[in-house]
Design a protein around this nucleic acid. Sequence first.
RNA 1: GCGCCCAUGGCUCAGCUGGAUAGAGCGACGGUUUGCGGAACCGUAGGUCGCAGGUUCGAGUCCUGCUGGGCGCACCA
Length: 550
Amino acid sequence: MKTAIKQIIHDALEKARQAGELELSSFPEIVVEKPKDEKMGDFSTNIAMTLARSERKSPKVIAESVARHLENGELSQAVVAGPGFINIKMSREFFLERLRNVVTQGEDFGKSDAGQGIKILIEFVSANPTGPLHVGHGRGAAVGDALARILKKAGYDLSSEYYINDVGNQMNFLGRSTWLRYRELMGEAIEFPDNHYRGDYIKGIASEIIDQKGDEFLNKPEEDCIPFFRKFAKDNILKGIEKDLSEFRVSFDNWFSEESLYEDKSVEKAVDWLRSQGHVYEKDGAVWLKSSAFDDDKDRVIVKQTGERTYFCSDIAYHQNKIKRGFKKIINLMGADHHGYVPRMEAVLEAMGYDKKIFKILLVQFVSLLRAGEKVSMSTRSGEFETLADVVSEVGVDAARYFFLMRSSDTHLDFDLELAKKETPDNPVFYIQYAHARICSIFRAAEEKGVLYDRSVDLSPLRDDEEFAIIQAILAFPEIVEKSARALEVHRISHYLLDLVSRFHGYYSRHRVISDDELLTQARLFLLDALRITIRNGFELMGISSPEKM
RNA sequence: GCGCCCAUGGCUCAGCUGGAUAGAGCGACGGUUUGCGGAACCGUAGGUCGCAGGUUCGAGUCCUGCUGGGCGCACCA
């Protein structure tokens, strides 16, 4: 919608230039926004202010000149206001024509080619397969998955990926923890080490092994047991993670195993290559990457004294692999507690000769669960739940996703469990879903009354200001999606939907949709159809359902 | 000590690449219902945008310093 306005302004600038009123050695970028107050107009531009300096004229004079040349069949008024804003009103036809398009596009409404098919990889969650997903992972999962949906909608060629840390020390601890619990369950007295995984789920896995294998491992030496226990526990936990995610409506295009990078020698090759470039040196029996040469605080060990590779080392190979797969932009979501990791990853990319701008790490801040205003303890020890699956089973997928997505991801999130469950307008998910259900209900009522709804209906009976405010809000949706994609900010969608829907609730309470005026009824049904489509499409981007009845 | 993030009405938060009189929701107070879902709507009160400088025609937004809070500074991830 705004691109049309930009074009009109552009034409006016051109005319002003031809008339000798403006120099315009270069055309500035035209910014179109909504005026502060809707009464001032449909759109406004500050173009005169940005031109003031280069034109050496006051913004007011420039604005007057541009406004004079603003003419277009679809434009109804252009006035200069304030320090030099040009406020523009468009004709009703301008909006109605575009509204018609919304219904024609249906579920495609909101799509754009802003991304120009650029290949993007987004990696998120990537929790170690050493335990179930907790609430923090849930936020990352919701944000990552929604971003993936948004970026696709905005025309990027997007792939999503989960990186599985399935090798290394953590896996050994996992295997050993399971093995110890196994022996314990078989009746041995075990002193369980503090640095092992103590969660109850380990006992569950151990007892599954007992079910399948009995006492087979009881009298074997540790070395002979660990590989089996490690793999069994990992597979079991990973299956659980996949299940939790899929129930949370989060899916990945690819699950990438760290182990595969060792199997195909990628890690070895990456280290050799870095060494050949002189980015690597040996000290204290370990191999170090000179990351400090690329703005990291210090150099980082990639091969330990023991000969084991660090996780950072395989991450190098992993990110090299991502780039080699042709991704032009690589997005990683991480918990904010890992932010110290950012400079060293950027250093790696620079060391490999890539522009670090292709790499974007999004830090997702912490989640505090609140129950009745009190913070729920997040410690593993406490009886209070903290896993994603528990939260989802309490409040449902829709509410959980909405709450994770309602705030900018770089601020801490207070997740109020009681509020999430409420079926009142305080709860934004229900408020929005209710609007959708209400619209569907109106359509049901119309059908009962025998009102014919047909998409080719004449829209000219729509003339109320409130109706046009809603239409404009609907038509802004593709721009919201684009901005959300560009800024990688999901919360804009939820704020947008809330605003959109509150306009509808107000409108609904003041106007009857179904009336004796058949033409008006049909036109209003059309408007509601477009609105319903917009709500659905917006919720779809957030992975939230749009129920027809509640 | 060093680094990253945050700071906007009583509470939770928006504020798009700096733009017009800083906006919502909750809570508080007061209203609204013969009709399509009251699971809703309308109104009132409430803010030195943490503090101090700076850049700019213009700063909640950018820069510097400070204060307060969160997080991180491993041959752990």
